[in-house]
Nucleic acid binder design. Structure first.
Length: 295
DNA sequence: AGTTGTCAAGCTAGT
DNA sequence: ACTAGCTTGACAACT
């Protein structure tokens, strides 16, 4: 089991997600930001390696506006060497990478323009991982999307559009259960038809489920991953005690986490801790995982 | 230097 | 018909 936190490190003092306003878009601005972001990403990866945190989610802001029509600059070519170096470091360290485009990226919208933009967005995520030389175990995760007043039809549209995706995207795309619309069961049903691996989100499952226990659900999700996809990826977070339902906790709840790790001891997967204090919780979690799983 | 409103993008649910 | 919230940081314009 590899374990880590998404996108940001709060200790190092740099950000790999530095962006700018679209009105200020220029080739120079983009190069400046990406240079800075890649440099910070390297710092984070070094920190993670030192701390044995071997799973990391790279932010979609690493290359601002990369999938947008405004971006006519070939950043892949420009940063080719740097990307290969970073990818080399990731591989040599035995690390794994994921990416997670945000809620605007969905392939089941009835709006053609939304789907087109989403595909363009997914494409650059995959191209980035490709440029780093990472194998297909590096994944890009999205949710099923909207319901649009007709869940069956919306699932159907997901399936149709998924099947039309270029191979470059299909080889990396995984679908994650969300906390309001598409449960794990919904994702599994889609997976049974198109073969997309299902990324299990423990916390979302607590918010929306079909009565299965966490262990049962996790096992079901794991079956959708094949050897070529690598170990199943799992997202974990806990509920902020006084927060609205679905709000992520500030720091990991140690007791809940121990419980989760103990219950799932027999299953192997990679774990992303979606907790606000990032590497702090990840380090605590790693200690627990090591003790309970004896790794 | 510190504070605050705003940001490329979609969707749902609540008013 | 309209907007807050997702999740949330960071930019940019303002004190």
């Amino acid at each position: 089991m590899k374990i880590c936190y998404p996108c940001i490190n709060t200790e190092i003092g740099c950000t790999p997600n530095s962006t700018f306003r679209i009105v200020n878009f220029s080739r120079e601005k983009l190069v400046e930001k990406v240079e800075n972001n890649l440099c910070c990403l390297e710092n984070i990866l070094r920190y993670n390696r030192k701390n044995k945190l071997l799973f990391f989610r790279i932010s979609s802001d690493l290359v601002p506006f990369a999938g947008h029509t405004i971006c006519n600059f070939n950043w892949k070519r420009h940063f080719r060497k740097k990307l290969a170096i970073i990818g080399g470091y990731i591989k040599e360290s035995g690390m794994r990478i994921s990416m997670h485009p945000d809620q605007f990226t969905l392939i089941n919208s009835p709006r053609k323009d939304v789907v087109t933009r989403s595909i363009s967005d997914l494409k650059w995520h995959c191209e980035l991982l490709e440029a780093m030389g990472l194998d297909k175990k590096a994944k890009v995760q999205i949710h099923v999307g909207g319901v649009y007043g007709n869940k069956e039809g919306s699932v159907e549209r997901f399936i149709e559009n998924y099947q039309k995706l270029p191979l470059l995207i299909r080889e990396r795309l995984v679908v994650e259960n969300d906390e309001r619309l598409y449960s794990l069961q919904d994702c599994i049903k889609i997976s049974a038809i198109v073969g997309v691996p299902v990324l299990f989100d423990v916390f979302h499952h607590l918010c929306l489920n079909n009565g299965e226990s966490t262990e049962k659900a996790l096992k079901m999700a794991c079956k959708t991953w094949e050897a070529k996809d690598g170990l199943p990826m799992v997202d974990y977070s806990s509920q902020e005690f006084f927060g609205r339902k679905g709000k992520h906790a500030t720091t990991v709840n140690i007791e809940d986490f121990k419980n989760f790790i103990a219950k799932t001891k027999m299953i192997d997967f990679d774990l992303m801790l979606e907790i606000k204090d990032k590497e702090k919780s990840a380090k605590k979690a790693l200690k627990i995982v090591r003790r309970i799983r004896e790794i």
